[in-house]
Computed example of a mutant assay.
Amino acid sequence: MSSKTRSKKEESPEPPPLIPSLPEDIIINILARVERCYYPKLSLVSKRFRSLVTSHEIYERRSSLGCTEHSLYVVLYNRETGKGELHILRRNANGSHRLVLIPGLPDMPAHGSFVAVGSRMYVFGRLNSVISIDCRSHTVHLLPSMNVSMSDPFADIIDGKIYVTGYCNNTMKMVMTVFNTETQMWEPKKTMPETMGGLNMWPDGCVVMAGKMYTRDNINSFVFGYDPKESKWEMDNMLNMFRWRDACVVDDVLYYYDWGGKVRAYDPKESSWVVVNGLEKLVAEARFSDRFYTGSYSGKLALFFWNLHGTRVIRCAEISLERRQGKEIWGKVEWCDDVLLGGRFKVMKTLDVIV
Rank of each mutant, 00 (worst) to 15 (best):
2 S>L: 07
2 S>N: 10
12 S>K: 14
13 P>L: 11
17 P>C: 08
18 L>C: 15
20 P>W: 04
20 P>K: 11
26 I>F: 12
29 N>C: 11
31 L>A: 07
32 A>H: 08
36 R>Y: 12
39 Y>M: 14
42 L>G: 06
44 L>V: 09
62 R>K: 10
63 S>W: 02
65 L>K: 04
71 S>M: 09
73 Y>E: 02
77 Y>S: 08
77 Y>K: 12
81 T>W: 05
81 T>Q: 15
82 G>F: 06
86 L>P: 08
91 R>H: 07
92 N>K: 13
92 N>H: 10
98 R>M: 11
103 P>M: 08
104 G>L: 10
113 S>P: 01
114 F>I: 01
115 V>Q: 01
116 A>C: 05
118 G>N: 07
119 S>H: 15
121 M>Y: 05
122 Y>G: 02
123 V>M: 03
124 F>A: 02
125 G>H: 01
126 R>G: 09
126 R>W: 13
129 S>I: 03
131 I>T: 10
133 I>R: 00
133 I>V: 12
135 C>K: 08
144 P>R: 09
147 N>V: 10
148 V>I: 14
150 M>C: 06
152 D>W: 07
159 D>F: 04
159 D>I: 05
160 G>C: 01
165 T>R: 07
169 N>E: 11
171 T>V: 13
173 K>W: 10
176 M>H: 04
176 M>P: 08
178 V>Q: 02
182 E>L: 09
186 W>Y: 03
188 P>C: 06
191 T>M: 14
192 M>H: 06
193 P>A: 02
199 L>Y: 11
200 N>A: 13
202 W>C: 09
202 W>E: 05
206 C>T: 00
214 Y>A: 00
215 T>N: 04
217 D>L: 02
226 Y>L: 08
231 S>N: 15
232 K>Q: 15
233 W>Y: 15
240 N>T: 15
242 F>L: 04
247 A>G: 04
252 D>L: 04
256 Y>A: 14
262 K>I: 09
269 K>M: 10
269 K>N: 11
271 S>V: 06
274 V>W: 15
275 V>E: 10
275 V>F: 03
278 G>Q: 00
279 L>V: 08
281 K>D: 12
282 L>A: 10
283 V>G: 05
286 A>V: 12
293 Y>I: 12
298 S>F: 02
304 F>R: 00
309 H>A: 13
310 G>A: 15
314 I>T: 14
317 A>N: 04
317 A>T: 11
318 E>H: 09
323 R>D: 03
324 R>I: 03
326 G>R: 01
329 I>Q: 00
330 W>E: 02
331 G>N: 00
333 V>W: 13
334 E>F: 08
336 C>Q: 10
337 D>M: 02
346 K>E: 14
348 M>C: 12
350 T>Q: 00
352 D>K: 08
353 V>D: 00
353 V>I: 06
